[in-house]
Amino acid sequence: MAYVVTDNCVDCRFTRCVAVCPVQCFHFDEAMVYIDPDTCIDCAGCVDACPVGAIDDEFNLADDKRHWIEINRERAAALPRLTSSLEPLPGAEARKAALGR
């Protein structure tokens, strides 16, 4: 069981999660970040760090979010690793507000 990044990250990509990840298990593309489930050690540090609540324990995911488990696994394997935080995407604050966060 690992932690999973879901759709709230899309177009935000605040990447505060990356700064607190002890094992550097985040990978990224132009839209969002993904967790490599084989590297994640389930410490849960990223959950509270995310300003838009995009990350959750696999266990807690609603049925309509469960497909993100496989997306994280596949995308993390194909994308470069992220070792420190990036600038949030332009419009991230607006999207955060739209998400009611």
Partner: peptide, 12 residues
Amino acid sequence: NGTIGTNRADSV
């Protein structure tokens, strides 16, 4: 307080 990774941001 915090998790193992909290120390990474803290030390940075």
